[in-house]
């Protein structure tokens, strides 16, 4: 590498680090704010960590913003966690089963079902807000985990992903297990499911984040505080915080709300990248 090459390489690293710093800046600010008491944050922003870090997090987790009428964040995190897990597992189970049926069987209406699932790509919650809400209300599923999760577990992309993958599985495997006398479910359990492990892992990461980050749907379906998820709970705190200025507690909640999905992405990076690329195909 020539001298100018080294200089430009230094410059490239410099710009990259600057970019990362700018992107991470909001998180740094939130972390700092969550370590101070309420009064410190009122004046000029303090560019150092305060001493109230543990105290603030303990407060929001245990009792929430009591003075401002905000609920405890502990149960909200629990609700978010249940919601994300149920949606992820549910989506994977119903998608892998329907993909298995569509690829490995010939039956009337097979392509009809396939197109029905495909069309749901075009029906995001946002365009059918009111009627979907009414369906849930009529089924008396408001303020329940079922109402929170069931409408979100149907997925065209997950079904596609499994279908595409099953189509690449060699026919010899199917033939061999048929010669061995294995029925379809046996083949599914012993051959197809083990082969799908990486796809399932990749999909799990993507769908977990999708479930955890849901906002509009929980906003509609939950009216009882005991059912709030943390992502939607924050918005209520902001509205209150503006009047009460308890930004230290709001920022502590924000950190708690973004930590689980961010950890999943960072720790399962390989699956995450695979899932992101595959589901967009």
């Amino acid at each position: 590498m020539s001298g100018s090459g080294r200089l430009s390489s230094l410059l490239i690293h410099g710009v990259l680090i600057l970019g990362i710093a700018v992107i991470a800046f909001p998180i740094l600010i939130a972390l700092i704010a969550s370590s101070h008491d309420q009064i410190t944050l009122v004046g000029k922003f303090p560019f150092y960590f305060g001493e109230h870090f543990i105290e603030n997090y303990r407060t929001v987790l245990g009792e929430g913003m009591k003075r401002a009428g905000g609920g405890a964040v502990g149960p909200m995190l629990m609700n978010s966690f249940v919601m994300a897990i149920v949606i992820a597992v549910g989506k994977i189970v119903i998608s892998i089963l329907s993909a298995f049926a569509i690829v490995y069987f010939r039956f009337p209406f097979r392509m009809g079902f396939f197109w029905m699932i495909f069309i749901t790509l075009m029906l995001p919650v946002e365009v059918r807000i009111l009627p979907t809400y009414q369906v849930i209300a009529n089924l008396e599923l408001l303020n329940s985990y079922t109402g929170l999760t069931l409408p979100l577990i149907a997925s065209a992309t997950a079904t596609f992903l499994f279908r595409q993958f099953f189509l690449t599985v060699p026919e010899e495997l199917t033939e061999a297990s048929r010669i061995d006398g294995a029925g379809p479910m046996r083949f599914f359990w012993d051959v197809l499911l083990p082969l799908s492990r990486t796809n399932i892992a990749a999909l799990f990461v993507i769908v977990f984040i999708y479930g955890w980050n849901q906002y509009l749907w929980p906003l509609l379906v939950t009216q009882e505080e005991s059912m709030y998820t943390v992502v939607m709970g924050i918005q209520r705190m902001v509205t209150v915080a503006d009047a009460q200025a308890e930004w230290n507690l709001v920022m502590a909640t924000t950190i708690l709300a973004l930590l689980p999905p961010v950890l999943v992405v960072v720790l399962m990076q390989r699956w995450f990248v695979k899932g992101l690329v595959e589901t967009e195909k």
């Binding site: 970019g19 990362i20 992107i23 800046f25 909001p26 998180i27 600010i29 939130a30 704010a33 984040i209 955890w212 980050n213 906002y215 992502v231 939607m232 924050i234 918005q235 902001v238 930004w247 709001v250 920022m251 924000t254 709300a257 973004l258 999905p261 961010v262 999943v264 992405v265 960072v266 990076q269 995450f272 990248v273 992101l276």
Partner: peptide
């Protein structure tokens, strides 16, 4: 660089509201 993908839009909104 990839972690912000995992932040919910509403949470991203709150981070920016504070700044």
């Amino acid at each position: 660089l990839i972690w912000p993908y995992a932040v919910a839009p509403a949470v991203a909104g709150v981070l920016w509201v504070f700044m």
